Amino acid sequence: MKDLRVTHIGGPTTLVEVGGWRILTDPTFDPPGRRYSFGWGTSSRKWTGPALDPDEIGPIDAVLLTHDHHADNLDDRGRALLAQAPTVITTRSGARRLGGGARGLRPWMQTELDAPGRRRITVTATPCRHGPPLSRPVAGPVVGFALRWDAQEHGVFWITGDTVLFRGVRQVPHRMTVDTVLLHLGAVRFPLTGSLHYSLTAAEAVELCTLAKPRTIIPVHYEGWSHFSQGREAVERAFAAAPDGLGERLHWLPLRPADSL
């Protein structure tokens, strides 16, 4: 995608620069070492910190927050940063909790980022299910985001959000053309629930990308926390075995300030 720049800051947190906009996804900036509760007897320890501190990022025009109730997607320092963002887009329940004019979307709802001198961006919320069937009351609502802007050539920029592979997320490539996907991975598991997983496995990611056929695949949210059961090696193996050269479309963004796509 021309004019698109993505910098991986850590976990799900990226800086997306396009059309004059500087958009932050799922801000997480706490230092490593702390254990966070995820509710219902589950928890996870953060092992690695961000590649950039908030004051190194510069001004932010908008935050796309897939959900506000898990610390690996919004931690204490990330929450403090929200007050500096002119626009925050998240789930409906998350917007009610955050207040401050946050925009809440349900799946397939749309809103726009529009400002003089910048390309208009249409943001469409996409379905997520953050766990196995019937887990939504426990895991809470999550959304992904599909971004389309003026003069976009090939398709949307899709942020999957924390989700497993299910009917709702499979609808995305049927309803829109995906050019670049920011793929939330990690196959999250907790000892309390055994083999059940709460985010995409490597095999599910291959199946989803086979459906979506993106030109560029950017893996994120696969490292730095104890609740991830699959990391980069598992993802690389799965994509290397995928047909049609799918693995050649993977773009790993190293976690250093100078590295971006």
Rank of each mutant, 00 (worst) to 15 (best):
R34A: 11
R34Q: 10
R35D: 09
R35P: 04
Y36D: 05
Y36H: 06
W40F: 12
W40G: 06
T42I: 07
S43Q: 13
S44C: 12
S44W: 02
R45P: 00
W47L: 12
T48N: 11
G49P: 13
G49V: 08
G49L: 11
A51I: 10
A51D: 09
L52W: 10
L52K: 15
D53Q: 10
D53G: 10
P54D: 12
D55C: 03
D55K: 05
E56M: 08
E56S: 11
E56N: 02
I57Y: 07
I57H: 06
G58S: 02
G58P: 03
P59F: 11
P59K: 14
P59E: 15
P59R: 14
P59T: 12
I60R: 00
D61R: 02
A62N: 02
A62R: 01
A62V: 01
V63H: 11
L64C: 00
L64P: 01
L64R: 01
L65Q: 04
H67E: 14
H70F: 11
A71M: 05
A71E: 13
N73W: 00
D75H: 00
D75I: 00
D75P: 03
D76R: 06
G78V: 10
L81G: 02
L82K: 01
Q84N: 15
Q84P: 00
Q84A: 14
Q84Y: 01
A85E: 06
A85H: 09
P86N: 09
T87G: 05
V88M: 00
V88A: 01
I89E: 04
T90Q: 00
S93D: 10
G94S: 04
A95W: 11
A95Y: 09
R96Q: 14
R96S: 06
R97K: 15
R97N: 13
R97G: 13
L98A: 05
G99W: 03
G99K: 08
G100P: 05
G101L: 10
R103C: 15
R103G: 13
G104W: 03
R106P: 03
P107E: 06
W108E: 11
M109W: 14
T111V: 13
T111M: 06
L113P: 03
L113T: 05
L113A: 06
A115D: 11
P116Y: 02
P116W: 02
R119K: 15
R120L: 06
T122Q: 15
V123Q: 02
C128S: 05
